[in-house]
Design a protein around this nucleic acid. Structure first.
Lengths: 141, 141
DNA sequence: TTCAGGATGAGACTCATTCTCAATAAGGAA
DNA sequence: TTCCTTATTGAGAATGAGTCTCATCCTGAA
């Protein structure tokens, strides 16, 4: 629960040799319960709107730590602003972005994961991470 | 050959209601014979280094037209600078980016293409375009 | 050859993100 | 609990890829 994810966060800071601060906690609080795909500015503004004060620089700096330690996933939707989402349960998925509505739909397909690892292996590589985004339009029937 | 791709280019300009200019041709010349994945600045500098003068703005503007008309493919490698490559033969492929060397390796897998269309279909969509990048490391044996 | 309107170039501008640095605060030591 | 070293913070400047502006130039139809 809440205290659990807080502990995970503290452990990561310790592992990285970083101090536990109010500001870092606020950024993680803001991110960890969101189910959207939010940009840094949105996270910054939400914290501000709660009457709390954290600078943009700190938001970015903290997100970097979270991304590096896989508590948060960073995604490039192609409009110049990165989006972030929590990955507490480490449920890997990829994204479909609807060209009509801008909706972001998550999907996961085991077969796809296996196939891409095989493709890399055949060329002498192993996949460290990947980006797989489908820019789609609704099927019309 | 050369004259052929030149004609394709001219036709596209006409179709778009745009004029054929020296500058546009220079940008297309620079791009069409390259087998690398180059950024806009590189294309701009190469033209300059040949003693020719085309502005950065025109390079970007022309690339937009080429991308829109599928003579050039735009790819986001994740470092903030888009890369471009010609796609005269319209040979679709995806990319593997080696984390150790920065090398960009092209790959194509039919099964993958079919699978992702199926995934989209199952959710009521059809794939317009996609981004599939594998960030890899060499297999050590 | 003419000329209307599209194209260009130089540089200003945008905007997400990063950097700077003086002031602040975490947290180990005593 | 207090002290003190040093990481962290915030405000705003800086960066950098890409876009926009607008006076001037040039294409191409007639």
């Amino acid at each position: 629960m809440a205290s659990n994810s807080k502990n995970i966060f503290k452990e990561i800071l310790k592992k990285e040799g970083l101090r536990y601060t109010q500001q870092r906690q606020l950024v993680w609080d803001e991110l960890k319960n969101s189910h959207d795909h939010r940009d840094a500015e949105n996270i910054y503004m939400c914290i501000r709107n709660n009457g709390l004060n954290v600078s943009r620089a700190t938001v970015y700096r903290t997100i970097d730590v979270l991304v590096k330690n896989r508590l948060v996933r960073k995604m490039d939707v192609g409009d110049g602003r990165n989006r972030f989402e929590p990955r507490l349960n480490d449920d890997h998925h990829d994204h479909m972005i609807c060209q009509n509505t801008g909706d972001i739909i998550e999907f996961f397909n085991e077969e796809l994961e296996i196939l891409q690892e095989k493709i890399a292996n055949d060329l002498g590589y192993t996949v460290v991470r990947h980006v797989h985004q489908l820019f789609v339009k609704p099927l019309t029937k």
